[in-house]
Write a protein that binds this DNA or RNA. Structure first.
Lengths: 215, 215
DNA sequence: CCTTGTATCTATGTATACAATTATACAACA
DNA sequence: TGTTGTATAATTGTATACATAGATACAAGG
């Protein structure tokens, strides 16, 4: 029987707020108050503040005397993020290829297959979720919390911009093909190949996302 | 007149706890309680918990039903950290060389000179502080919060192991020489050279720290 | 002797009350 | 009219009280 880990309100508020801010629900520069969040989320200030402290640590918000300043992610941030990911994410896949278990490999494959499944349906939301999950799984399966902690915040900050990406069906297909290539290298335990293909994939994502004029 | 920014108790508790854990005051595996920290720090649970949530996000502790589990940094973590820093920190210096102001350059030089000053005195504590500050300044002067947020946690996690490093006078001198070489490349606005020298510096630090058998 | 159920205790999780700082509006005065 | 001082309101910062879940010890039963 599966364990049902209780998720604290603090954690739920963090996840929800982070998603909402990074998906662009609150515009950069807007100022919120804790009491507004209390009303919106239906919980007291304590778990809200614990979540806000974590978001502040990620430089997604700033807690000022006037309220909570939405910082979000700038286009310049995106450039820095991709320059870092290009140099790190390949190593992470390398580690994953060396450390992944059969069970984990199965989960990776299922995620990939779902991504491929939703593309002809044109379900951009689910495509994005699976695309994103594929990367997150690779971080986890590297077996290193250092890679995970370093790459996850960078990956999450691209969310808002990736949506535009998957809505283009050509790019969505290309992305899924690249994911499959990475998956097959990992399944074959070819770490060097997995690394190389991951670097290529990030480069392509960067070209596609930074090529546009956003913000 | 200089502004005196008030630092919240939450922030103070975070800094102190992080330093104490990363310096090895609490052994990995030990379990603390919030009430113990309330007594030790002399503040209520609220700011303590806000600090704990941030430490948990950095994977330095885990908040369990039995108490606060000290996770700290393993030797494996160190390897991952250096593999990442080698690939990122050079780019950060490259950006710093391009963006640094005269005022910032002066602060960097003063930090370097203090580091050099304390070496013949054998003041390991201050040497370490200045050595560490030099890197932190480079993160700041890159002008990118992405580089800062990515590198700072990795840098801080090496603290405990760097102390051993600076207590060796030969290595302390070498490190200061390498810092000076980086500084001069930045002062000359030679970004490519600053990058190259930084990568070399991190490689040497890795060889020196990972070469030992610690933990 | 091992297992299982239960009561209790201890720890975290959450809500609320209180303190203190800061922005803001407005009036008084030069 | 511009400026400065002051009162007020609004917001975050902190402490404390309460709720709840999980670990632990112990006793009862097989």
């Amino acid at each position: 029987m599966l364990e049902h880990k209780t998720i604290s309100l603090s954690e739920q508020v963090f996840d929800r707020l982070e998603t909402e801010i990074l998906s662009g629900k609150y515009p950069r520069g807007e100022i919120l108050t804790e009491m507004k969040l209390v009303q919106d989320m239906g919980v007291s200030r304590t778990p809200i503040r614990e979540a806000l402290r974590r978001l502040e640590q990620e430089h997604i918000i700033e807690m000022t005397t006037r309220g909570i300043l939405i910082v979000g992610v700038t286009h310049k941030d995106l450039e820095d993020i991709f320059n870092i990911r290009i140099r790190i994410e390949g190593m992470c896949s390398y580690e994953a290829a060396k450390n992944i278990t059969e069970e984990e490999l199965r989960e990776l494959r299922e995620t990939l297959e779902l991504q491929e499944f939703y593309i002809p349906k044109g379900d951009a939301d689910r495509i994005k979720i699976m695309d994103s999950k594929f990367h997150q799984l690779l971080y986890r399966f590297s077996g290193s919390s250092v890679y995970y902690d370093t790459l996850m915040p960078l990956h999450k900050k691209v969310q808002k911009y990736r949506r535009v990406s998957v809505e283009n069906e050509d790019r969505a297909r290309q992305s899924a093909r690249e994911h499959r290539a990475i998956y097959e290298a990992i399944a074959a335990r070819d770490a060097a190949l997995a690394e190389q293909r991951t670097v290529e994939h990030i480069k392509n994502a960067m070209d596609h996302i930074l090529g546009r004029e956003i913000d």
